[in-house]
């Protein structure tokens, strides 16, 4: 059966750490940083469970700042 693999890329300098993507992700792929901040002083979203992502783009759809790009491939 074909398996779908996804990857998200977060523009961490644009991210404001609103946490909406983390809430929207059905598989808990994303989480906010706890210690690191970007140039503007916000904590930002990052991938914590890389292998789990299915590229559904829920995170990118709800992102108010358009920081997230989503990639998806179907593995045979």
């Amino acid at each position: 059966m074909a398996k779908i693999k996804g990857a998200v890329v977060v523009d961490s300098e644009r991210c404001k750490g609103c946490n909406l993507c983390v809430v929207a992700c059905p598989l808990d792929v994303l989480a906010l940083t706890t210690k690191e901040v970007n140039k503007r002083g916000y904590t930002f979203a990052q991938t914590v469970l890389e292998d789990t992502c299915i590229g559904c783009a829920s995170c990118a759809t709800v992102c108010p700042d358009g920081c997230i790009s989503v990639y998806k491939v179907k593995q045979q």
Binding site: K5, G6, A7, V9, G55, A57, A60, T61, G66, C67, I68, S69, V70, Y71, K72, V73
Partner: peptide, 11 residues
């Protein structure tokens, strides 16, 4: 996975 042809969503 991160290649232009696999892109499904961007700003």
């Amino acid at each position: 996975i991160i290649k232009p042809e696999n892109l499904v969503y961007k700003k």
